[in-house]
């Protein structure tokens, strides 16, 4: 999947939201709304499964699928669910789809299922999904919710890929399992370890902050 594709998707979403189809709006929108880098939501899966680019990709897509399905269902049920029990019913909806994804991944690739481990089930408690259900899908039409879910899901996948590729590149000398550096390259084992996840995310956030600060001053 190329970056350009994602950009187009996001551009469509943000343009429809703000009614101005310029690319500038898209960049602002992506920065303001990216679930990982800006809202700092869904940290646990972001850090835990981003040790290789492949895991990051699979996790991002699984989350995007659950996000899409739950947004559709939450949005279509928004007039029937009583306000007092809405959170509980959202969680039930999300848990149903996560169970489906869990079994689907197990059927597609046992190896991948083993690598992601309990973190597939833990999509249930990913704050991004519940957050979008509560903040967006419960108040908007189905069409808008689908666009929102696509934008958020791809933004999440993109962020995970950012982390995963850096960690795999430095920690293993490869990307998507293909080795990049010559054999003499000394791997930074720490990048694969939990500590590396914290450091990589910190550096990405730092870059985002620095760029934002620079933009604000100019």
């Amino acid at each position: 999947m190329s970056n350009q594709n994602k950009n187009k998707e996001n551009a469509g979403f943000f343009a429809s939201l703000q009614n101005s189809p310029s690319t500038d709006e898209f960049i602002k929108g992506l920065w303001r709304e990216n679930p990982v880098f800006v809202q700092v939501l869904g940290m646990c899966p972001t850090l835990a499964v981003s040790n290789t680019a492949e895991n990051a990709m699979a996790m991002g897509l699984a989350t995007a699928f659950v996000l899409l399905m739950s947004n559709i269902l939450v949005s279509s049920l928004r007039n029937f669910v009583p306000k007092q029990v809405r959170i509980a019913s959202y969680i039930l909806i999300i848990a149903t789809f996560v169970t489906m994804v869990d079994y689907a991944i197990q059927a597609i690739s046992v190896e991948l299922h083993k690598a992601l481990g309990a973190f597939i089930s833990l999509i249930v408690v990913n704050c991004v999904i519940l957050g979008r259900a509560e903040a967006f899908a419960s108040k908007n039409t189905i069409g808008k919710s689908i666009l929102d879910a696509l934008g958020m899901g791809l933004g999440f996948t993109f962020a995970l890929l950012c982390l995963g590729s850096v960690r795999e590149l430095l920690g293993n000398g490869s990307i998507f399992g293909l080795s990049v550096f010559p054999k003499s390259y000394q791997e930074w084992i720490v990048m694969i370890l939990p500590a590396g996840g914290f450091f990589t995310l910190a550096v990405w956030l730092l870059i985002f902050n620095a760029a934002k600060a620079r933009k604000a001053t100019t």
Partner: peptide, 22 residues
């Protein structure tokens, strides 16, 4: 520095804590 304040600083500390817990 202003850029590092907040989440970035917390994550860096968490990384060091995680290293020491190893």
């Amino acid at each position: 520095p202003n850029v590092v304040k907040g989440t970035v600083l917390t994550l860096l500390i968490a990384g060091i804590l995680s290293l020491s817990f190893m």
